[in-house]
Amino acid sequence: VGDQVLEIVPSNEEQIKNLLQLEAQEHLQLDFWKSPTTPGETAHVRVPFVNVQAVKVFLESQGIAYSIMIED
């Protein structure tokens, strides 16, 4: 199991704000291929294997929908 690319769908401005804060966490080494800008629009982010669980827990705790787009 390696890195994953998640497709994330924020449903409101609050969730977009939370994702932008997540993007700013440099220690997570997230690679946003497509940043969140509009509710209902997908964002794509590559998550290093060591941080996959932490990111998924965060998304679930914020009620942000996501799916695994690419499993490496």
Results as ranks from 00 to 15, higher is better:
Val1Ser: 13
Val1Cys: 15
Val1Asn: 14
Gly2His: 11
Gly2Trp: 12
Asp3Ser: 14
Asp3His: 14
Gln4Cys: 14
Gln4Asp: 03
Gln4Ile: 15
Val5Arg: 04
Val5Met: 10
Val5His: 08
Val5Gln: 05
Leu6Thr: 00
Glu7Ser: 14
Glu7Arg: 15
Glu7Leu: 15
Glu7Asp: 05
Glu7Asn: 08
Ile8Phe: 05
Ile8Asn: 00
Ile8Tyr: 01
Ile8Lys: 01
Val9Tyr: 15
Val9Pro: 00
Val9Ser: 07
Pro10His: 01
Pro10Met: 04
Pro10Gln: 01
Pro10Tyr: 03
Ser11Asn: 09
Glu13Leu: 13
Glu13Gln: 10
Glu13Asp: 10
Glu14Thr: 09
Glu14Arg: 07
Gln15Phe: 01
Gln15Glu: 05
Ile16Arg: 04
Ile16Tyr: 04
Ile16Leu: 12
Lys17Asp: 06
Lys17Phe: 11
Lys17His: 10
Lys17Cys: 08
Asn18Tyr: 15
Asn18Trp: 15
Leu19Arg: 00
Leu19Tyr: 01
Leu19Lys: 00
Leu19Pro: 01
Leu19His: 00
Leu19Asp: 00
Leu20Val: 07
Leu20Cys: 06
Leu20Ser: 05
Leu20Pro: 01
Gln21Cys: 10
Gln21Val: 12
Gln21Gly: 08
Glu23Trp: 15
Ala24Trp: 13
Ala24Glu: 09
Ala24Ile: 09
Ala24Lys: 12
Gln25Gly: 05
Glu26Phe: 14
Glu26Leu: 13
His27Glu: 11
His27Gln: 09
His27Pro: 05
Leu28Thr: 03
Leu28Gly: 04
Gln29Thr: 06
Gln29Ile: 05
Leu30Ala: 03
Leu30Met: 05
Leu30Tyr: 02
Phe32Ile: 04
Phe32Gln: 02
Trp33Phe: 14
Lys34Asp: 10
Lys34Arg: 07
Ser35His: 13
Ser35Pro: 14
Ser35Ile: 14
Pro36Val: 09
Pro36Met: 04
Pro36Cys: 04
Thr37Phe: 06
Thr37Pro: 06
Thr37Asp: 05
Thr38Cys: 08
Thr38Glu: 09
Thr38Trp: 07
Gly40Arg: 03
Gly40Asp: 04
Gly40Ser: 03
Gly40Met: 06
Gly40Gln: 04
Glu41Cys: 08
Glu41Arg: 06
Glu41Tyr: 06
Glu41Asp: 08
Thr42Ser: 13
Ala43Met: 12
Ala43Tyr: 15
His44Gly: 04
His44Leu: 15
His44Asp: 01
His44Arg: 15
Val45Lys: 00
Arg46Lys: 07
Arg46Leu: 09
Arg46Pro: 01
Arg46Ser: 07
Arg46Phe: 10
Arg46Met: 05
Val47Ala: 02
Pro48Arg: 05
Pro48Asp: 04
Pro48Gln: 05
Pro48Val: 03
Pro48Ala: 06
Pro48Phe: 04
Phe49Met: 10
Phe49Gln: 08
Val50His: 12
Val50Phe: 10
Val50Gly: 09
Asn51Ile: 06
Asn51Gly: 04
Asn51Pro: 00
Asn51Phe: 14
Val52Phe: 13
Val52Arg: 04
Val52Thr: 05
Gln53Phe: 10
Gln53Cys: 10
Ala54Val: 12
Ala54Gln: 09
Ala54Phe: 13
Ala54Leu: 11
Val55Arg: 00
Val55Glu: 00
Val55Asp: 00
Val55Trp: 02
Val55Thr: 03
Val55Asn: 00
Val55Leu: 12
Lys56Ser: 04
Lys56Glu: 04
Lys56His: 05
Lys56Pro: 00
Val57Met: 15
Val57Ile: 13
Val57Gly: 10
Phe58Thr: 03
Phe58Leu: 06
Leu59Phe: 03
Leu59Asp: 00
Leu59Gly: 00
Leu59Cys: 03
Leu59Ser: 00
Glu60Ile: 07
Glu60Ala: 07
Gln62Asp: 02
Gln62Pro: 00
Gln62Val: 11
Gly63Cys: 05
Ile64Phe: 04
Ile64Val: 03
Ala65Phe: 14
Ala65Gly: 06
Ala65Ser: 09
Tyr66Lys: 00
Tyr66Arg: 00
Tyr66Ala: 01
Ser67Lys: 13
Ser67Ala: 07
Ile68His: 04
Ile68Asn: 03
Ile68Trp: 05
Met69Lys: 07
Met69Ile: 09
Met69Phe: 10
Ile70Asn: 11
Glu71Trp: 12
Glu71Gly: 10
Glu71Pro: 11
Glu71Ala: 11
Glu71His: 08
Asp72His: 13
Asp72Ile: 15
